[in-house]
C-alpha cells in the first residue's frame, strides 16, 4: 500500500516538473545569469557510488570558482536518467554505466558527448571474520555459501552475471537485491556469507567487511561517463564541472576512492 502511495505521489511530482521543464522560457533567465555570474548554482545528478568522491569534488570546485554552488542528487543511475527524462532540473549527469548515459544521449538530453571519468570492477565482500571461508570466485558457487547479488535488472547485477560467465560458474544467490548498497548491508549485518559489490564499496565500508579480490573481475569493467545536459541554465559552468571531474584533481580523488582510470 505504502509503495503505491509513494510511487503515485512521485508520479504526480514528476508530472508537475514536466510541465515546468517543457515551458520554453530559458532566454530571459540566461541573460540574468550572464550579467550576474557570481550567483550561479548547478545541480549534479550522480550515481550513488560516486557520493563521497563527488561531495569532496563539489567543495573543491566551489572553492576554485567563487560564487558557484554545486548541489547533488545521488541515486541509482536508472532512477536519475528517468528523472532527467521527466524534466528534472539537472545540469550535469554522471552515470555508473554507459547504458543509462546512452538513454540520456538518445533523448538528446546530453550537451556534446559524454566523457568517461572512472571505471569500477567487482570484488567479493564477506563479513569481517569470513565465516564461510570464501577465498575465490569459485567458492560462491558452493550451495552452502549464502551469496547475495544485485538483481540482473540493475547495473551491478548485470556486472555480476558477466563475472559468473567469465569465471564459468553458476551462483544460486539467496537474494537478488535492488542495489549494491542492499547487498553490502546484508553482508555487513552477517546475514549473507558473501556478496559481489564494487571495489569502491569495499573500500568505503572500511573494516566492516573484508574484500576478496579475484582475477576474473577485470573481465567486467563498469565505465562511469559524465556529461553536461542540454537542459542546463548554466551550460558553461556545467561543462566546467564535468571537465573538472575528468581533470587531474578529479582523477586523484576518484583514484583515492578505489575507482580505476577510464
Amino acid at each position: 500500500m505504502r509503495s503505491i502511495v509513494v510511487s503515485a505521489a512521485s508520479i504526480l511530482l514528476l508530472a508537475t516538473t514536466t510541465a515546468c521543464g517543457t515551458s520554453d522560457d530559458n532566454g530571459s533567465d540566461d541573460a540574468a545569469t550572464s550579467s550576474a555570474p557570481q550567483d550561479t548554482s548547478i545541480t549534479v545528478f550522480a550515481a550513488a557510488s560516486l557520493k563521497s568522491s563527488f561531495t569532496e569534488l563539489g567543495s573543491a570546485f566551489e572553492k576554485a570558482n567563487p560564487g558557484v554552488t554545486v548541489t547533488f542528487n545521488f541515486a541509482g543511475s536508472s532512477d536519475l536518467v528517468a528523472q532527467i527524462q521527466q524534466g528534472a532540473p539537472a545540469d550535469v549527469f554522471a552515470s555508473a554505466d554507459t547504458t543509462n548515459m546512452d538513454k540520456a544521449t538518445a533523448d538528446d538530453l546530453v550537451a556534446g558527448s559524454p566523457t568517461d571519468v572512472a571505471t569500477n570492477t567487482l570484488e567479493i565482500a564477506t563479513p569481517p571474520g569470513n565465516p564461510a571461508g570464501v577465498d575465490s570466485i569459485d567458492d560462491l558457487a558452493d550451495p552452502d555459501v549464502k551469496v547475495v547479488l544485485c538483481a540482473p535488472e540493475v547495473p551491478c547485477g548485470a556486472a555480476a552475471a558477466g563475472v559468473e560467465k567469465a569465471a564459468g560458474i553458476s551462483i544460486s544467490p539467496v537474494s537478488e537485491e535492488q542495489s549494491v548498497t542492499d547487498v553490502l548491508g546484508k553482508v555487513v549485518s552477517g546475514e549473507a556469507d558473501a556478496g559481489l559489490v564494487y571495489v569502491t564499496d569495499v573500500k568505503a565500508a572500511g573494516d566492516k567487511v573484508r574484500g576478496v579480490t579475484f582475477p576474473e573481475s577485470s573481465r567486467v569493467v563498469n565505465t562511469y561517463p559524465i556529461a553536461a545536459l542540454t537542459g542546463s541554465k548554466h551550460p558553461d559552468v556545467a561543462k566546467a564541472f564535468a571537465d573538472f571531474v575528468a581533470g587531474d584533481q578529479g582523477q586523484a580523488v576518484l583514484a583515492a576512492a578505489g575507482f580505476g582510470a577510464p
Binding site: 536508472s78 535488472e153 537474494s175 537485491e177 548491508g185 546475514e191
Partner: peptide, 25 residues
C-alpha cells in the same frame, strides 16, 4: 521485507518488490 528478507523470485520477491525492480528495466 527488502531490508529483512531480501529479494528472490518465488521466495521473497513479493509484488511491491517486483514493481520496484521492474522500474529499472
Amino acid at each position: 521485507t527488502i531490508t529483512f528478507a531480501g529479494s528472490l523470485e518465488g521466495v521473497t520477491r513479493t509484488l511491491p518488490l517486483e514493481i520496484y525492480l521492474q522500474r529499472e528495466t
